[in-house]
């Protein structure tokens, strides 16, 4: 036993290396349990504060552009206000009934940290559990999908960007409703790829791609981008289309967090039919 200790002590450099490396790899490989391992991320008190201060300084530089985007959005919303429409059918009346059920709820938040140049990109938001934000909520902007909340602390939350290896999104071509799967394949952060488009579909440059309603996280019809190119890849039988993303992820600032209020019910029901879903 003493010899063993002496051996370890003599080679302490090597054994300490093994120990620390194993610890680091274990922390990394516990990715599946990301929700539990939120001590070392940008949502904790110290790192969140630092990013808030840095963002406060940096946000002045983009005020003009932000104002322009907000004005555009205001115009868009004003156009949807009821007062803009003439009432044509005087016989119509409103009744309180159960015809409408709220399905999606929106909150706004600010991106205080963000990246686009890694293979797996994340962003940090300035709202957290205290404001009702939790894992698996969607993060969208007026120009597209930003990502998905993976973990939240009291006042901050971290989202997995669409620019991430593990982010796959069910999308459809707006004009004919054909469904495909969108994934960012690295490289240019302004382009992603939509796969599994049946080859009999006629594609055109400029076709709009929006979210399909198959996701339990994002509402249907959110703009993603436009198709710029397509091909049948070697060994595949479906088209893979290059999609120019409408959202510039490098200028992400104001976002909306969308929560699907009926998500659990849907998943529970689906889980009872398809085991392991």
């Amino acid at each position: 036993m003493r010899n063993l200790f002496r051996f370890i002590y003599r080679h302490n450099f090597f054994f300490l290396f093994l120990l620390l490396e194993a610890l680091a790899i274990a922390l990394t490989a516990s990715y599946q349990h990301y929700h539990q391992s939120f001590f070392f991320n940008s949502a904790n008190i110290l790192t969140g504060r630092v990013y808030t201060v840095a963002d406060n300084l940096g946000s002045y530089l983009s005020l003009r552009q932000e104002n322009k985007l907000l004005a555009e959005e205001n115009t868009h919303l004003l156009n949807m206000v009821k007062d803009n429409f003439l009432i044509t059918d005087q016989d119509e009346f409103v009744k309180e009934d159960s015809l409408y059920r709220r399905r999606y709820h929106y909150m706004n938040a600010r991106v205080i940290n963000n990246s686009v140049n890694r293979r797996n990109n994340y962003f940090t938001l300035d709202k957290g559990r205290a404001q009702g934000i939790g894992p698996d909520m969607g993060v969208i902007t007026t120009r597209g999908i930003a990502g998905l909340i993976v973990t939240a602390s009291e006042n901050f939350s971290v989202g997995m960007s669409l620019l991430h290896t593990d982010f796959q999104l069910s999308v459809m071509i707006k004009k004919d409703g054909n469904i495909g799967s969108l994934r960012w394949e690295g490289g240019n952060y302004r382009q992603a790829h939509m796969s599994y488009i049946p080859p009999h579909i006629e594609l055109n440059r400029g076709d709009t791609v929006v979210t399909s309603g198959f996701s339990t996280i994002f509402p249907e019809g959110i703009l993603i981008g436009t198709i710029s190119d397509w091909e049948i890849r070697r060994g595949e039988t479906f088209y893979t289309a290059t999609v120019d993303l409408a959202l510039d992820y490098n200028t992400l600032a104001e976002v909306y967090i969308v929560s699907n209020l009926l998500r659990e019910e849907q998943q529970e029901l689906e889980g009872s039919v398809i085991p392991g879903n």
């Binding site: 490396e21 680091a24 922390l27 990394t28 940008s42 110290l46 990013y51 890694r118 994340y122």
Partner: peptide, 22 residues
């Protein structure tokens, strides 16, 4: 680990830094 905490990268910077130090 300090860089990891700010980059939401789990512990990949810690693992590579320890390897480099070794």
């Amino acid at each position: 680990l300090s860089v990891d905490a700010f980059s939401d990268s789990l512990a990949i910077h810690a693992a590579s830094s320890v390897f480099m130090a070794f």
